[in-house]
Simulated assay, not measured.
Amino acid sequence: MVATTSTAPTRPGGGRSLLDLVLRARELSILGALVVLVAATAIANPRFLSAQGIEDIFLNASILALLAIGQTLVVITRNIDLSVGSVVGLVAFVTGKYVSEAGHGLLAAVLLGLAIGAVCGLVNGLLVSLCGVPALVVTLGTLYVIQGLDHYLAHGQQINAADVPQPLLDLGSGNVLGVPYLPLIAVLVMLAVGYYLRSYPSGREFYAIGSNPEAARLAGVPIRRRVLTAYVMSGLLAGVAGVLWLARFGTVIADNAHGWELKVVSAVVVGGVAIVGGVGTVYGAALGALLLTTIGSVLVVLKVNAFWQDALIGFLLLLAISVDRLLAVRMTRALRRRNARHAW
């Protein structure tokens, strides 16, 4: 796996390698937790590892992973997007209504979903980057605005799978060479965004902003443009997720993905993306989404009350934030000791 780097100045073999090691350890620990969780559940209920069970986990995790990838771009710039769940619900319903009434196919659904998501992300980005309104306030407000718009358009109606064009439904249930389309899309997006953040100067500027906004500004980083880009990308991926939600489930109501904004943030933080910005990878965020989805499936298989799923996610979120804080303190101390030795 490829880990991102901090923009803090370090000496060769110093802070950068230490940070890389910590990030790899976080991602490997999530992978290890997944293996242990799946193995323990399979022992308790061998049917858990059936082909259909594994496919369902990856299908359900794909939409959450896409949202987590978009959220990662925002969080590493020291911001947050709480509107993604509402955008998914709006896109799923509006797109479903459009294709069912107008008779359009897959391409029209994808383009409409991207357009709606981009507009929502653009509004968030303009308010945060240009107007200077705190991201928490902006996205909490747009969350309720988008929810209200969704309910207004729905008027209690629902979109039925029978009214959705078959090519769109095939996207949610089909596969290529045995690999379902949804996980394949999520992996391709993850690899593309991860490569961009690691390999392009503009991608590394996202981390510079999150690590030290003032230093990034003095270095000439276009902070407003990058923050705006992060929100637009988050909106675009939420639009894609809304179309995939429609393709996956077929039947859509106005409350789809209600409450998912906190699940997305949890997946990102559990995946090792620091809530204070500047640290984390999209690979870790995607693994966090897979872990949370697997936990939900495990609790269903073991017939555990759904309440404990939310409680466990909350515990993991608190644990991840605590670990991030502890690692940040230890890394700072380690860097100071290294720099002091080199100074001598």
Rank of each mutant, 00 (worst) to 15 (best):
R217A: 13
L184E: 05
A219L: 07
V84W: 02
A247D: 05
S199C: 13
G271H: 08
L246F: 04
G314D: 03
L19K: 10
L31F: 09
G259L: 08
V110P: 04
S129D: 10
S297T: 01
L302F: 10
L191K: 08
F315L: 15
A306P: 14
G220T: 09
Y195M: 14
L126K: 11
T41H: 08
Y231E: 06
V187I: 15
G242V: 11
A3M: 13
L327M: 09
Y231A: 03
I253W: 05
P167E: 01
N339A: 14
G113K: 09
L292W: 09
Q158E: 14
I313M: 11
L66S: 02
A3T: 14
G103E: 10
L130R: 15
A285E: 07
V22F: 07
L67A: 02
L21G: 15
L122Y: 06
L184C: 07
V99R: 06
M1V: 09
R26L: 15
W245E: 13
V269Q: 05
L171G: 03
M331F: 00
G132D: 05
V240N: 03
I69F: 06
L127P: 07
F249L: 10
N305P: 03
Q157K: 11
L28T: 13
A8D: 07
A102I: 01
A65W: 06
N160I: 05
Y98S: 13
T5K: 06
V74W: 03
V87A: 05
S129M: 06
G103C: 08
S86F: 02
L67E: 00
G117H: 04
G277Y: 08
A8S: 08
H151W: 11
F48I: 01
V243G: 04
L177T: 05
L149E: 01
Y231G: 04
H104S: 12
A286L: 13
G141C: 03
F307I: 07
A42C: 06
L188F: 10
R11Y: 09
V270R: 10
G314T: 03
Y152K: 10
L197Q: 12
K263A: 15
V137A: 14
L107R: 02
N339R: 12
K263M: 14
L312V: 14
G113S: 10
V84M: 13
L140Q: 10
I253A: 15
I295E: 05
T41N: 09
M331I: 11
G242C: 10
Y231H: 12
V91E: 04
T41Q: 08
H104P: 00
A186Y: 09
A215F: 07
I209E: 07
S266D: 07
L107V: 12
C120F: 11
A65R: 06
E261Q: 10
H155V: 03
A289P: 00
L290W: 01
L130I: 04
G53K: 01
L34P: 07
A186K: 11
A219K: 05
L127M: 15
G280T: 02
H155G: 00
I159H: 01
T10P: 05
T251Q: 10
F93A: 12
R47W: 03
N212H: 14
L291K: 07
G174H: 08
L31T: 07
S202Q: 15
L169V: 06
F48V: 01
A109S: 08
V179M: 14
R330C: 00
D20L: 14
I321C: 11
W260Y: 15
V189M: 10
H258F: 15
G272A: 02
G15D: 13
V279Q: 12
V282L: 12
L168T: 09
T229Y: 01
L107Y: 05
